[in-house]
């Protein structure tokens, strides 16, 4: 068996209601739990998903409701790959958006730390965006090996 073989996958789409931030976290968390991650790993992944989905509800679909696509893949080497995609407004300057404390919405008390949280809590984060067409965030985190059973 190849080390990087995908062993399980889910795909979900949902409307960008803010209540679905919690729904997305809960679903990803339940799915990743099948790999027996540590409490901290699961908590980090939940947080990263929450940030990515919140960006869709707050920024990509500002003042409108659109579709958020979420795909999670689990690999044999215990890598979790999460893709969050929207067809919203897009980001004109991705590099600027990735800067800690950068926000386009200070009135809404956004901390500007969303991408920083994703980058801190996941091993890799990639952001592809096109203005008027949407954004795709892909994040990976390799879970620590399972403790050896005695």
């Amino acid at each position: 068996m190849s080390k990087n073989e995908c062993i399980n996958e889910i795909k979900i789409t949902f409307p960008s209601y803010s209540t679905n931030e919690g729904t997305a976290r809960a679903m990803v968390s339940a799915f990743c739990a099948t790999l027996n991650p540590t409490v901290e790993e699961l908590s980090d992944i939940r947080c990263a998903v929450s940030e990515a989905v919140t960006n869709c509800t707050v920024h990509a679909y500002k003042n409108v409701i659109g579709t958020v696509s979420l795909a999670v893949r689990l690999y044999a080497d215990r890598t979790v790959r999460i893709e969050v995609k929207d067809k919203g407004c897009g980001i004109a300057d991705v590099e600027e958006a990735l800067q800690p404390l950068f926000t386009t919405d200070p009135e809404g008390e956004r901390s500007g730390m969303g991408f920083t949280v994703m980058e801190s809590f996941m091993d890799t984060v990639s952001v592809k965006s096109s203005v008027g067409r949407g954004t795709k965030v892909t994040m990976k985190r390799r879970l620590s090996p399972l403790p050896v059973k005695r």
Partner: peptide, 13 residues
């Protein structure tokens, strides 16, 4: 039980 950067916004606000 859970907090993300929106919670940080709440605290700093």
């Amino acid at each position: 039980s859970f907090m993300d950067s929106s919670g940080l916004g709440l605290i700093l606000g």
